[in-house]
Amino acid sequence: MGKVYLVGAGPGAADLITVRGARLLAAADLVLHDALVEPAMLEHAPGARKIAVGKRCGQRSTAQQFINRQIIDAAQRHAIVVRLKGGDPMLFGRADEEMRALEAAGIEYEVVPGITAALAGAASLKRSLTLRGVSRSVALATHSRAADTVAIREQVNADSLVFYMGRDSAPEIAQQLIAAGRPGTTPVALVEACSTPRERVLTLTLAALAAGAALTWLDAAQPSLLMIGEAFAARGAVASAAVAVEPAVQPGMSRAA
């Protein structure tokens, strides 16, 4: 019986994987990788057999139960199996379902964290997710949900909001946030294909996003990240907002200058 490693591939760039992750790829006998993993990332595993098992929103993809079965079968045939997952395995990656399947089958596994897209997106924008006087809390969310579940109320209390897999729902997300009290002037940044050579950034306001201004800009073939909050404003505007806010500001009070 082999061992399975759930490895975070990071946000995209092949050199943003952890040293441990790269070392495990180099030693792997078989790699089961997500659809969003860059081809250059797989070059870290020259001697491994590689199988694409990832999911893409709105496209036909491998069922999770079948992925679980593939991982178990691979561990029964190979000493080192890497399940390579985009970003960090423990964030919107269905890692819990895979870990449960491995535990039920009595297979040893280890989780190797990766850089999640929210951190890489902030680095690309050169904007901190948290900023004294402007943003003291961050929420990472997804608008997508299983078909048999009720709607999830959006997290609107955090200062900085980062939505994964929100491309097709961007106008709806913005409309819900405005309805919940977010100003239409709230800065928004869309980061597409983060950290890769295809990376693009679009900045606009929440009101413009709600009106569908980003729909023609977004590329359906690329992963995108939706970042909302005063921390993502132009640097001069962020500095002004930080100066205007008293240190003892209470939750719910406006942080605008």
Rank of each mutant, 00 (worst) to 15 (best):
245 V>P: 00
127 R>T: 02
225 L>D: 03
187 P>F: 12
87 G>C: 08
184 G>M: 05
46 P>L: 05
98 E>C: 08
253 M>E: 15
254 S>K: 08
20 R>I: 07
67 I>Y: 08
2 G>W: 07
126 K>V: 13
93 G>Y: 08
126 K>N: 14
63 A>G: 12
66 F>G: 03
116 T>K: 02
171 P>W: 02
110 E>K: 07
118 A>H: 09
54 G>F: 14
194 C>Q: 00
242 A>V: 02
146 A>W: 11
155 Q>C: 05
6 L>K: 05
181 G>K: 08
54 G>E: 06
191 V>G: 14
249 V>P: 00
124 S>R: 11
73 D>R: 15
69 R>W: 09
103 E>N: 10
4 V>G: 08
153 R>E: 12
119 L>V: 11
202 L>I: 04
215 L>G: 08
27 A>M: 03
90 M>P: 01
60 R>D: 13
240 S>M: 14
148 D>K: 08
5 Y>M: 08
92 F>W: 05
101 A>N: 04
232 F>I: 10
83 R>K: 10
215 L>S: 15
187 P>E: 11
22 A>D: 02
101 A>D: 07
242 A>S: 09
149 T>V: 09
199 E>N: 04
24 L>D: 08
25 L>E: 05
191 V>T: 03
68 N>I: 11
19 V>P: 04
74 A>W: 06
55 K>V: 10
81 V>F: 03
122 A>G: 12
233 A>S: 14
249 V>Q: 04
69 R>I: 04
1 M>V: 13
167 R>H: 06
210 A>S: 09
99 M>G: 04
64 Q>P: 12
44 H>E: 00
10 G>E: 02
206 L>W: 02
54 G>Y: 10
97 E>K: 10
30 L>H: 06
89 P>R: 07
190 L>R: 05
217 W>L: 04
62 T>P: 01
188 V>E: 00
